[in-house]
Amino acid sequence: MIPAAFEYARPTTVDEALQAIADGGEDVKILAGGQSLIPVMRLRLAAPETVVDLSRIEELRGVRDDGDALVIGAMTTHHDVLTDPLIAQHAPLIAAATETVADRQVRARGTFGGALAHADPAGDLPAVALALDAEFVIAGPGGRRTVPAADFFVDYLTTALEEGELLVEIRVPKLAGQWGMHYEKFNRVAQAWSIVAVAAVVRRDDGHIAEARIGLTNMGPTPLRARAAESALAGAEASAEAIAAAARSAAEGTSPSSDLNAQADYREHLAQVLTRRAVTAAAGL
């Protein structure tokens, strides 16, 4: 299978990339790591007029410390996320989820920003970004704007990115206090997509759970927060019983799909079980 013919642009700066997107005609696709886009183009599910390849834009790579936040360049590969000391120190949840993405060949090419902009509901990183209250810095012809994770994921494979815009970096706020994090993923075989997964970020305080943030993967057309379970956990005793009780509300407000891998009601069951496991691990129990 070979993609349909396209024009190819390989800018070396963000400004050149924005120009290439503007000049690219009606149907422009942005190539980050290509590990989702190239398969889709091979299947001719996408046949863009122009492909703008970001792989030579050095300013989009790498992780930096910006005081109260980590800033992750959109073109930082999954491999580089896994080996980054700042992420290991401040946001180990990102590394834990990234480790489960596909396989090492795909992680060598695939990028953090590409996975978020693709916004596949079965992808692992959107729910993690949501649980960490990340912010998305978007460059466009009129300058830059910042969108919170809660507003970034709009619908199935659809984000707040407008035509002509480019995701340039992701800001992950550093967490103050005693936080634990865990990513619990359920799939059937190695390298497969999540059937359901749960990202949990928990702050413990004196035997209690002070705050819990729970991101759900593949429980609807976008990643979701398990708000009911978060509310039930706030102030709860850090015990197996209290966590199990709160986790029973993890599927409230979700709308999972039914497909070959699982029926919707089974996904709701998984969300509860995986939330219990993820919160228990994140709480250090």
Binding site: M1, Y8, R10, L31, G34, Q35, I38, P39, R42, D53, S55, H79, D103, R104, Q105, V106, A108, R109, Q191
Partner: peptide, 27 residues
């Protein structure tokens, strides 16, 4: 497989293993 799953086409590009069915030659 031609679907980025099987890894039979794995080569090293600039020192790292990649699936060569999921990389453009121009890259």
């Amino acid at each position: 497989c031609d679907t980025s799953n099987c890894g039979a086409c794995t080569v090293h590009l600039d020192g790292a293993a990649v699936k060569s069915c999921t990389v453009l030659a121009v890259q």
